[in-house]
Amino acid sequence: MTGIEWEEPFCGEGNNCFRLGTDAEGKAYIAVAGQENSYLVDSREALRALIAEIKAGKADHLL
């Protein structure tokens, strides 16, 4: 996990807290707050696209 700079946790309702992070190599990370040693990793562009799609409502059916 060395080299990942984590943002402050983003918490939805209840205990659903996630953290976003990036590293110097251009990778982006998503983890459950408190479990940063187990994360998903992809490019910053992929993370940006994921967030845009979520904001556009394309994941609402999962809620």
Results as ranks from 00 to 15, higher is better:
Met1Ser: 13
Met1Glu: 13
Met1Ile: 11
Thr2Trp: 09
Gly3Arg: 13
Ile4Ser: 11
Glu5Trp: 08
Trp6Val: 03
Trp6Lys: 02
Glu7Lys: 00
Glu7Asn: 11
Glu7Ala: 13
Glu7Ser: 13
Pro9Gly: 03
Phe10Met: 03
Cys11Thr: 13
Gly12Lys: 00
Gly12Pro: 00
Gly12Phe: 06
Gly14His: 02
Asn15Met: 01
Asn15Lys: 08
Asn15Phe: 00
Asn16His: 12
Cys17Leu: 14
Cys17Gln: 11
Phe18Tyr: 15
Phe18Ile: 12
Phe18Pro: 05
Phe18Leu: 15
Phe18Thr: 15
Arg19Ser: 14
Arg19Trp: 01
Leu20Tyr: 04
Leu20Gln: 03
Leu20Thr: 00
Gly21Met: 05
Gly21Ile: 01
Gly21Ala: 05
Thr22Val: 12
Asp23Ser: 05
Asp23Met: 07
Glu25His: 05
Glu25Gln: 11
Gly26Glu: 15
Gly26Asn: 15
Gly26Leu: 15
Gly26Ala: 15
Lys27Leu: 06
Lys27Ile: 04
Ala28Val: 00
Ala28Thr: 02
Ala28His: 04
Ile30Gly: 01
Ile30Asn: 01
Ala31Asp: 05
Ala31Thr: 07
Ala31Gly: 04
Val32Pro: 01
Val32Asp: 05
Ala33Leu: 08
Gly34Tyr: 04
Gly34Asn: 05
Gly34Asp: 06
Gln35Arg: 10
Gln35Trp: 03
Glu36Asp: 06
Glu36Met: 00
Asn37Tyr: 02
Asn37Met: 03
Asn37Gln: 06
Asn37Ala: 04
Asn37Lys: 08
Tyr39Ile: 07
Leu40Val: 12
Leu40Arg: 03
Val41Pro: 01
Val41Trp: 00
Asp42Lys: 14
Asp42Pro: 06
Arg44Leu: 15
Arg44His: 02
Glu45Ile: 06
Glu45Gly: 10
Glu45Asn: 06
Glu45Trp: 01
Glu45Arg: 05
Glu45Lys: 08
Ala46Met: 06
Ala46Ile: 14
Ala46Pro: 15
Ala46Leu: 08
Arg48Val: 07
Arg48Lys: 09
Arg48Ser: 10
Ala49Cys: 06
Ala49His: 09
Ala49Ile: 14
Leu50His: 09
Leu50Trp: 07
Leu50Ile: 13
Ile51Phe: 06
Ile51His: 00
Ile51Glu: 03
Ala52Met: 04
Ala52His: 00
Glu53Val: 00
Glu53Tyr: 08
Glu53Ile: 02
Glu53Ala: 09
Ile54Gly: 01
Lys55Cys: 08
Lys55Thr: 11
Ala56Met: 07
Ala56Ser: 09
Ala56Trp: 02
Ala56Ile: 09
Gly57Tyr: 02
Lys58Cys: 08
Lys58Arg: 13
Lys58Val: 09
Lys58Trp: 08
Ala59Glu: 11
Ala59Ile: 12
Asp60Lys: 15
Asp60Ile: 07
Asp60Met: 09
Asp60Cys: 12
Asp60His: 03
His61Arg: 07
His61Trp: 09
Leu62Glu: 09
Leu63Gly: 08
Leu63Pro: 04
Leu63Asn: 09
